[in-house]
Design a protein around this nucleic acid. Structure first.
Lengths: 133, 133
DNA sequence: AATCTTATGTTAGATTTTCTAACATGGTTT
DNA sequence: AAACCATGTTAGAAAATCTAACATAAGATT
């Protein structure tokens, strides 16, 4: 279902809330945007509005920075991750129909998670969504 | 589990976001607060911060107003609802242990939903949480 | 060692958002 | 008609956020 994706990308949170949720400073958050690690939406009046996805991403960024990775590295990681998730989509589409999409997705995700440390953190998604029902 | 309740009562949203999500005006939202139908949290600087529960409640209020019920009526409904949910708790606690809490809760909820129209809307919760994962 | 780079802090001034309080108004109820 | 209810509108103040600029500590590069 893609309604989930829509909900998760809905711009809801002002920077103040995001600061508390992520324990990042406004400066840090804006800096990461400047380096195109996130692209929060804007209100009519130009104030940033963040989605759940944005917040997940910020928590990921925090992790990666703790691991000593710099902006360029993180950007690259996100690119690779996106490619992979596209690959997964393709694989899933032409999959044998005796496995449900759900099952297949799990298999592929699992595979990726256990192949090379690059993906560990980038696929460990859903940090913030734990806050929600 | 009560972690869910905590998450759902976490103050996250400024009034602007709530206006969009509920299609209520700021005036309406403040008016409902004035009549103690909601009690959003406040920032240090006195700006309102709403939780998912608050938003659910606002949507409920909207429904009830559409049904022609006034402030006093809605307030009363919420009181009754809360009493009932307390009663449910008690019932659930001392329940025969050959039914899981989950099952019992469903039973009771179902019972309430089908007894008197008062409860229909007040137990039809989770409107806004559909937005979240 | 001196310099450059990176990630972040800090400050200033402008703009947007939200606040309360007051008054206005069209439907209802009395 | 008078009063009440739910909401609109307005004004002025305060808070939150914005961009841009300068500051700086720790690492990397020369």
């Amino acid at each position: 279902m893609s309604g989930k994706e829509i909900r998760r990308s809905m711009p809801l949170f002002p920077i103040g809330t995001v600061m508390q949720l992520t324990e990042l400073t406004a400066r840090q958050i804006r800096y990461y945007e400047e380096h195109q690690l996130i692209s929060p939406a804007r209100t009519e009046g130009n104030r940033r509005l963040f989605s759940l996805n944005d917040i997940d991403r910020l928590l990921e960024i925090k992790d990666l920075i703790d691991q000593g990775i710099n902006m360029a590295g993180i950007k690259q990681l996100f690119l690779v991750k996106e490619q992979q998730s596209n690959m997964m989509e393709q694989q899933t589409e032409k999959a044998k129909p005796d496995l449900t999409n759900e099952q297949l997705r799990k298999l592929l995700r699992n595979e990726l998670m256990h192949s090379g440390r690059l993906n560990r953190s980038s696929l460990r998604q859903g940090d913030i969504s734990r806050f929600f029902h």
